[in-house]
Amino acid sequence: MTQRHHARTGRRAFPAIAFALCAGAMVLAASAASAAYPDHQITLVVPYAPGGGVDSVGRILSRGLAKELNQSVVVENRPGAGATVGAGYVKRAAADGYTMMVVDPALIINPSLMANLPYDPLRDFTAVSMLTLSPLMLSVTNGLPAKSVAELQGMAKTGGQGLSFASAGIGTTPHMAGELFKLKTQGNFIHVPYKGSGPAMTDLISGQVQFSFSTIAAASPFVTTGKIRALATTGDKRSPDWPQLPTVAETVPGFKVLFWTGLFVPSQTPPDVVQKLNAAVAKVWQSEEAQEALKKIGETAAPPMSSAQSQDFVHSESRMWATVVKDANIKVD
């Protein structure tokens, strides 16, 4: 073999060697960054205005994570367009574990309702952990004679203009619960969306609407004071906090709706960072302080789940709600 051939071979080999060395250096740098995580402030995005249920969960989590990770965790509210503004912001953030998001099922319901979303929930985000998991409450205005799910269902089949149900807004879990109830019972129900659970409860109390699915936190103060009447909860078993209430499924087989919140990060976040966050959430949620804080806002901590289990849960919820939106022919103007 000639000296010239060796020289050409050496020139061709050099870029490959250099590339391999650079790639190795990048991997080592990334590993070092992950090992040091977190070494500066973390931003926890809540894609809703301050004061709501998701915001409250986010603030409880931020306080706990700050202690567990020994780093400041700042809540940043980025409301708008049913959580899409905040979700779009987190999608564009660096996938390094320093920007994360607490969000509810709107994240995976929106793609079935809206065109041209700035994100794909299953592709652009990784579920770190589920945070809370609670049934909704089905309640009626006191002026409605229905005392059970069966009676409410019967009233919806008697003709007339139908019964109206309130929700916290189009695409929210309470809205989807109403649509699923309508599908499974073939009842004559008319959706009336509101901008939040507060206005929805106000009109339910006054009798402007006949019934509502809502979070337990939103409905229970008015149920306990007798301003509205609770008929059922929406889990697959009775709520330990409201054991006297039957589930909707006891009358309508297969009906199950859970309101959840979860912690998400951009999808390319290093797996060891995701694992570290998952373990931190588990420790925070096991603390008496966090459990008492969640109880005060009417939320229940989700059972411990790995990131993979959380991902599977989110995918299952996405498929279920996409089917409901399609079968109910729900359109967003």
Rank of each mutant, 00 (worst) to 15 (best):
T2N: 12
T2D: 07
H6V: 13
A7H: 14
R11I: 14
A13E: 12
A16P: 10
A16H: 13
A18W: 14
A18N: 08
A20P: 15
A23T: 12
G24Q: 07
M26F: 12
S31T: 11
A32H: 10
A35V: 14
Y37N: 04
H40S: 05
I42F: 03
L44Q: 01
V46W: 00
P47I: 03
G51W: 11
V57M: 07
I60M: 03
S62M: 06
G64L: 05
G64E: 05
L65M: 04
L65W: 06
A66G: 00
Q71P: 02
V75C: 04
E76M: 10
R78K: 15
G82F: 12
A83S: 12
T84S: 15
V85P: 05
G88E: 03
Y89T: 10
K91H: 07
M114P: 00
M114G: 00
L117M: 13
Y119C: 06
D120R: 14
L122M: 10
R123N: 14
D124M: 06
A127G: 09
V128W: 03
S134G: 11
P135K: 00
L136A: 07
L138W: 09
L138I: 12
V140Y: 03
V140K: 00
G143Q: 09
K147C: 04
S148M: 02
V149I: 02
A150E: 15
M155E: 11
A156N: 03
K157Q: 13
G160N: 05
L163V: 08
L163G: 02
A168W: 06
G169M: 01
T173E: 11
H175Q: 04
M176C: 06
E179N: 03
F181V: 06
T185C: 02
G187L: 08
H191V: 12
V192D: 06
V192Q: 06
V192I: 14
V192C: 05
P193A: 14
G196V: 12
M201A: 11
F211N: 00
S212E: 14
S212Y: 10
A218E: 09
S220Q: 13
P221E: 09
F222W: 07
T225M: 07
G226M: 11
R229Q: 15
A230V: 13
T233N: 01
T233I: 10
G235D: 11
D241C: 05
P243H: 04
P243V: 09
Q244A: 11
V248C: 06
V252Y: 08
G254Q: 06
L258Q: 09
L258I: 14
F259A: 13
F259Y: 09
P266I: 12
T269E: 03
P270S: 09
D272K: 08
V274K: 04
Q275H: 13
Q275E: 14
A280L: 02
K283G: 01
W285E: 09
Q286R: 06
L294A: 00
K295E: 12
T300P: 04
T300A: 08
T300C: 04
A301E: 00
A302G: 05
A302H: 05
P303R: 08
M305F: 00
A308F: 10
D312Q: 15
F313T: 10
W321E: 11
A322W: 01
A322L: 04
V324C: 01
V324N: 03
I330V: 15
